[in-house]
Nucleic acid binder design. Structure first.
Length: 586
RNA sequence: GGACCCGUGGCCUAGUCUGGAUAAGGCACCGGCUUUCUAAGCCGAGGAUCGGGGGUUCGAAUCCCUCCGGGUCCGCCA
């Protein structure tokens, strides 16, 4: 939609954004027409009407009201005043709306030109200056990552890719929570229990191998007072700043983390850097923050423990005291989080964190504290957890679907499909395609849904390879590759030859890609790219049905090859933004 | 008790921020399409009081209020 805002975001280069160019022209032609009727240029968003009516439209009700005339009268007076432009071919009035028709040849020429200039970079925004630090995933290293947590890396990584494409200099970061009671428990388990004491691990992968020790340690600490005492003693030593112990505990978490990272790597998620919470403590970065907090007038004390009463800041509930330190003066997580963010702000201009919905209050509290300290604020993207049909997943209960299992299942299912459909392919290539398809199916299934909606995990949905699914997108892309491969090298054709309705529809979508990337980045909503990618793939399939490429007359053939290549670039670009591999054939 | 998030055909989702012209897809079900660039595709059929009610507006899935249902959170844990 062509709200005035889109033309205000100056970082986007209009020359490389065909749809923005169309909107800008429509806006300027309309403004002139409106002014010439002595109507104030009230901004009315452009919308996309049913295609039988036009390509762009705006309602005249607001103008009508202002001028005290009937909307269809205003529309009929306005339409003839909108002259033909570079893109806008005609304007007609229908029932209070002015419908604009975009000249398909002009749009095609603009879009294919932009595609030719930018190549694979088509869709990218102007390189920006604002350094973004995107923290995501940051799951506690106590065991393998499960499907309940899967949205964080998938949303985070997709958002990272989209922000990069949009032009932001971006760093991704994983906060490794290697301090606290749970880590001490895990450490106690691996140092005090023998393999025969714990349940057999599901696999030798480090995160799976160590999980049973964590589970058993939890169980013992709950039921065996002696164990609990030992653990408490360890926690005290740890809290007392025992550097050797802190490092020892951290090294256990590093082992589990390496298993988690292997899993994430397999689904295409990697990080630029890691931040160990223990470093914050060992480097003495907590103390100064505590001192700054204590100096705040709003900070109060109870038995030596410091807290902020959040009630005046809009937080309500049973308990509004937000504790920053313990009675003994040692830090609590909120303090460490504040210290972490202050550290982050020295390394970026904008800090974004992908967080589960259960962290919403904590985020509000963090922002309140940062505001009180005169620091910048962090931005957050929240998502709801993936739940099983029978309820939420819990690591401690073992009621989880491990990501590793889901990946194996997805790839195995994909392998079956490939074998069925492409029995002639060599085994190694079948495996490659199966990996690409299976993993893409998982990621797409998560990223296509708005983050704040909860997802109920169902195998049949997660492993769906038809309809609105990753393989649908990948298949369309593979089709473009197939045609281009057989078509061979081609000279740029005449865009004006692309007059078929399916060609025009496809071209309009390709023209919008840069705009879509910009919007998705700005709104931090990766699913918008998923929706768009589906639209492109579906439209390409219609073009594929109706417009033979290779057998067309040479001039038309060349023009169509250009369109197919453009589709290839856009689909590949969109898939890349979603972290979905794009195999050349499948 | 309070705050926040979600509620769209049997199931899943887009559209909600930025209100507009008959609410758009997918899955499932039923019926079709392959001597033509990969049928993981395409076409057709049925299927929706956009959770209920009120309000604002020329116009509400979209904004406001309220109720209902589901979820999350309100630790000197992290």
């Amino acid at each position: 939609m062509g709200s005035p805002r889109s033309s205000d975001t100056g970082w986007r280069d209009v020359a490389r954004d065909p749809w923005a160019a169309v909107l800008a022209e429509a806006e300027s032609l309309r403004t002139r027409a409106v002014l010439s009727l002595s109507i104030p240029p009230i901004p009315v968003p452009f919308e996309e009407p049913d295609e039988t009516l036009g390509d762009l439209a705006f309602a005249c009700f607001v103008y009508a009201k202002r001028m005290q005339q009937a909307p269809d009268v205003i529309a009929s007076r306005l339409a003839p005043l909108i002259p033909r432009g570079k893109f806008i071919a005609s304007a007609t009035a229908t029932g209070g709306y002015v419908n604009l028709r975009v000249d398909p040849a002009a749009l095609a020429s603009e879009t294919l030109g932009a595609l030719r200039t930018a190549g694979e970079a088509y869709g990218a925004g102007e390189p920006g200056k604002e350094r973004v630090l995107l923290e995501h995933t940051s799951v506690n290293p106590t065991g393998p990552i499960h499907v309940g947590r899967a949205r964080n890396p998938v949303i985070g990584d997709s958002l990272a890719r989209i922000l990069r494409k949009a032009g932001f200099p971006l760093t991704t970061e994983y906060l490794v929570n290697d301090v606290g009671r749970q880590m001490v428990l895990l450490y106690w388990g691996v140092t005090h229990l023998k393999p025969s004491d714990v349940a057999p691990p599901q696999s030798a992968k480090e995160d799976h191998a160590l999980l049973p020790y964590y589970v058993k340690a939890n169980e013992l600490a709950e039921n065996d007072p002696n164990v609990n005492q030992e653990v408490e003693a360890l926690i005290r030593a740890f809290e007392g700043g025992d550097a050797d112990l802190t490092k020892a505990i951290s090294s256990v978490s590093r082992q589990i983390l390496s298993g988690i990272l292997q899993t994430l790597d397999r689904i295409g998620v990697a990080f630029d850097r890691f931040f160990w919470e223990s470093d914050l403590i060992l480097q003495g970065k907590i103390g100064p923050v505590i001192e700054r907090l204590k100096a705040l007038p709003v900070v109060q004390q109870e038995d030596g423990a410091y807290y902020i009463d959040m009630a005046p800041f809009g937080v309500k509930g049973r308990e509004t005291k937000w504790f920053l330190t313990k009675r003994d003066g040692t830090s609590l997580y909120p303090t460490r989080d504040i210290a972490y963010h202050i550290d982050k702000f020295t390394r970026c201009d904008l800090a974004i964190t992908v967080l589960g919905e259960n962290h919403r209050l904590e985020y509000e509290q963090l922002c309140t504290a940062l505001k009180l300290l005169g620091e910048r604020l962090a931005e957050a993207v929240f998502y709801s957890y993936v739940v099983l049909p029978e309820g939420k997943m819990q690591t401690r209960r073992g009621r989880i679907v491990a990501m590793d299992d889901l990946i194996e299942e997805a790839v195995a299912r994909a392998q079956e499909e490939v074998r069925k459909r492409r029995p002639e392919l060599p085994e190694s290539q079948m495996r490659e395609i199966a990996e690409a398809v299976g993993i893409a199916a998982l990621r797409y299934n998560i990223v296509r849904v708005q983050a704040e909606k909860k997802i109920t995990f169902r195998w049949e949905e997660a492993l769906n390879f038809e309809g609105n699914s990753a393989p649908f997108l990948q298949y369309a892309h593979a089709r473009t590759r197939g045609i281009l491969g057989k078509g061979g090298p081609f000279e740029p054709g005449d865009p004006a030859l692309l007059t078929h309705p399916e060609e025009a529809r496809l071209m309009k979508l390709l023209a919008r890609f840069p705009h879509v990337i910009g919007k998705a980045a700005e709104s931090r909503r990766p699913h918008e790219v998923a929706t768009f990618a589906y639209d492109v793939a579906a439209q390409f399939n219609l073009f594929y049905r109706d417009c033979p490429v290779l057998t067309a007359d040479p001039p038309l053939r060349a023009a169509r090859l250009g369109l197919v290549d453009g589709t290839r670039i856009v689909l590949q670009g969109a898939l890349d933004c979603l972290g979905l591999p794009a195999p050349h054939e499948m």
